[in-house]
Amino acid sequence: MTSAVQEEREAHLNDVRRAARTLARKFDLAYWRECDKNEKYPWDFVKAFAEAGWMGILMPEEYGGMGLGVTEAAVMLNEIGASGAGMSGASAIHFYVFPPQPILRHGSEEMKRKYLPLLARGEMLMAFGVTEPTSGVDTSRIRTRAEKKGDRWVINGQKVWTTNGQNATKILLLARTSPRDEARPLDGMTLFFADLDRKHCDVRVIDKLGRAAVDSNEVFIDGLEVADDDVVGEMGQGFRYLLDGLNPERIVVGMEAIGIGRAALDLAVEYANTRVIFDRPIGKNQAVAHPLAENWMRLEAAEIMGLRAAALYDAHKPCGAEANAAKFLGADAGYRACDQAMQTHGGFAYAKEYHVERLWREVRLLRLAPISQEMVLNFISNKVLGLPKSY
């Protein structure tokens, strides 16, 4: 890439950063504290980003989107996290941007034209039903089944950690359509874009540690009927369609964590400069200052990996190692920064008026989801270093 092209690209990304930052910071910390306290979905925030066109950042223009790349999406969600919105804000936008990707890549033209413009305008909220309580990270062992009866598919089963289930009207649902084959365990699962019909879906909210503003749910499915037109792509290939979206989502999740870490670091630095103990600001003490400096460096380094992975993905180059590393390093750096912000605030870290405890609670999720740190280490050990597979 020539220097002129590189400068133009950087200027473009700076425009994205500024625009996302300006909009996200119209919603202050008090707004997010209220959403968290009252478990209130941030509809005003979602509406503002939808009206500005951000929901369609990855959608082609022909379906009402911006037609931009994962790099721009990563920068946008990083700024949302850095605004103090935390996962409450990042998840609310994230679930308009990434769950529709299998539809965009593998859905019929009729399906794409029917649903993608609605998603791009923020007029349709969808849920994502993959994880099950009995299978954990071994998706090949899901028990939710879809059986053909006449001209309809009838689905029965259970999903867990389904985001947006309280408000969504549609769910991208992974179900087995043929028995598990030990030789090819990931075959035989199909994606359906189904109505989240409350007559056949019992949606129960999970009381959880953080991100109370954006609901997580158990979904019990009993006799949900789905038409052939709502099958995404080919029968039995659903899990492989999900794999298409794993690398970009891991990149962006890492960038969200980095943003949250930066928000916490900013709060900690402000507190360290203004909190006076023994006639001096606590930031003058190296025991306070040095950990904050170290966390700044970790966040900066993690962002470099995140942007590198995003650039590779947007250039259609292999990026599995970089995407997984971006998720691991971003989640680690974000969590460390939030935890150090808690330590910097000392006893006041438990006071919700200082906001750092909310960021700490929310960023902790990203060490577990959408993939655990341990599973990333498994991937790097086996696929990058060539060590024997451990699972």
Rank of each mutant, 00 (worst) to 15 (best):
L368W: 13
H94L: 13
C35V: 05
R121K: 15
P388M: 11
D229S: 13
L125Y: 00
D332R: 01
L243N: 15
R275D: 10
S91A: 14
R25Q: 13
V160I: 12
S372I: 00
I80E: 11
V203M: 10
G157M: 00
H12S: 08
V75P: 02
A30C: 05
L385S: 07
R145C: 11
G259V: 02
I57C: 10
G347D: 09
A301T: 03
H12D: 09
L267H: 08
V130E: 12
G238E: 06
A331R: 00
Q373T: 02
A19M: 04
K327S: 10
Y354R: 11
K37V: 06
T344Y: 08
S178C: 10
G129I: 02
D36F: 09
A227R: 12
T169K: 15
K352C: 11
H316V: 04
I277Q: 10
G330F: 00
V16A: 07
A257M: 03
L68E: 15
R143K: 15
V154A: 05
G65F: 05
T71I: 05
L243Q: 15
D339P: 00
W161R: 10
L387Q: 12
G65E: 06
Y313G: 09
P100H: 12
V219L: 13
I206P: 02
D181T: 04
E147D: 09
M111Q: 15
P185C: 07
Q166N: 13
M255W: 01
A325W: 04
E322A: 03
K112N: 14
P318K: 00
E374F: 05
A325D: 12
G320Y: 01
K383A: 09
E79S: 04
A48F: 03
S88W: 02
E357C: 10
A212V: 06
G165E: 02
A74V: 02
M87Q: 08
Y313Q: 12
E353C: 07
E62N: 09
L104Q: 08
R211C: 11
I304W: 10
L329P: 04
R105A: 14
A302N: 00
D228T: 04
R9K: 11
A85L: 01
R204Q: 14
V137W: 13
H106I: 03
